[in-house]
Nucleic acid binder design. Structure first.
Length: 276
DNA sequence: AGAGCTACCTGAAGGC
DNA sequence: TGCCTTCAGGTAGCTC
């Protein structure tokens, strides 16, 4: 599901909903996620007050006032949503996948739901950097991200540029959808070696990455099937894809036809006519 | 160090 | 209707 724009959309939604609230109870219904939820998770976070919600790449960081941070990764199908006791449950989210339920008061709940259980919910001390994010590459929405950042990351990388964009240690937060969309915007073939980018192409790709991420955030992210924001609602950017999931359709920019190929076991969509 | 592959898990969709 | 296969916003952990 969830790439940087979706995680960022959840983050801003949670800011409005749960900052300043105390976690009064935690129910871990299912601890076997990609990494097990720690046995002491409930003890560590109960009674903490939410001070801030941060993001690093595709990870959410819920900062508590007791020195504990909660790290959440949504994997492919995870959702982190807020609801009040009397709210109607968001449509299409089966309660049997509510793996971690945070009770904030008699009325308020924060729920981690994840059918495929590829996500992560962890707790750690705020005076260390969690190992899952310690090796992560630069944030594409930081002010100093640009062509030189990509040139540095991609030098000596013979792997296809699409694969390199997905490598979280090179650039943070980009997944399969936005890698395809950014390469289309930059008119760069996903098949090219990462190290073959010129300085001007790296500059163009960097701004294309930023533009597509910002456009997607403004649309509330992309919901192909599972993704929901902090209110349980779908995003709208899936209606604005230029190439992703558009195999066989006409290119929006030239007379070419969108093609699907497999790279690293995953689908890549691109226009062979104008992406060179 | 880098590149390529497999596994983890559920559910939806398509073919027959 | 139902059974079977394929595919899906991700990443860690192996091999070579």
């Amino acid at each position: 599901m969830p790439e940087l724009p979706e995680v960022e959309t959840v983050r801003t939604g949670l800011e409005k909903a749960i900052i300043g609230k105390r976690i009064t109870h935690v129910h871990v219904n299912q601890s076997s996620l990609r990494k097990p939820v720690p046995e002491k998770f409930s003890d560590l976070v109960t009674n903490g007050v939410v001070r801030n919600i941060g993001r690093r790449g595709k990870y959410l960081i819920v900062e508590l006032d007791n020195g504990i941070n909660i790290l959440v990764h949504l994997g492919m199908t995870g959702r982190l949503f807020y609801m009040r006791h009397h709210d109607e449950r968001p449509e299409g989210i089966n309660f049997r996948h509510d793996h971690v339920v945070f009770q904030l008061s008699d009325e308020d709940f924060l729920i981690y739901n994840d059918p495929r259980r590829f996500g992560i919910v962890d707790a750690y001390s705020n005076n260390v950097i969690h190992p899952s994010i310690s090796q992560m590459g630069p944030e594409p929405l930081d002010a100093d991200f640009g062509g030189p950042t990509l040139m540095k990351a991609f030098t000596k990388r013979k792997t296809p540029i699409k694969i390199a964009l997905l490598d979280q240690s090179l650039v943070a937060g980009i997944g399969n959808i936005y890698a395809c969309e950014a390469l289309w915007r930059a008119k760069i073939s996903p098949l090219r070696a990462a190290s073959s980018l010129t300085v001007s192409q790296a500059r163009l790709l960097a701004s294309s990455v930023q533009d597509v991420l910002i456009d997607a955030i403004e649309a509330g992210g992309s919901s192909l099937r599972d993704y929901r924001n902090a209110d349980g609602e779908k995003g709208a950017f899936q209606d604005k894809f230029s190439v992703y999931d558009r195999e066989g359709e006409g290119c929006q920019r030239c007379t070419g036809v969108v093609k699907r190929v497999t790279q690293g076991g995953r689908s890549t969509f691109y226009c062979p006519s104008c992406q060179v």
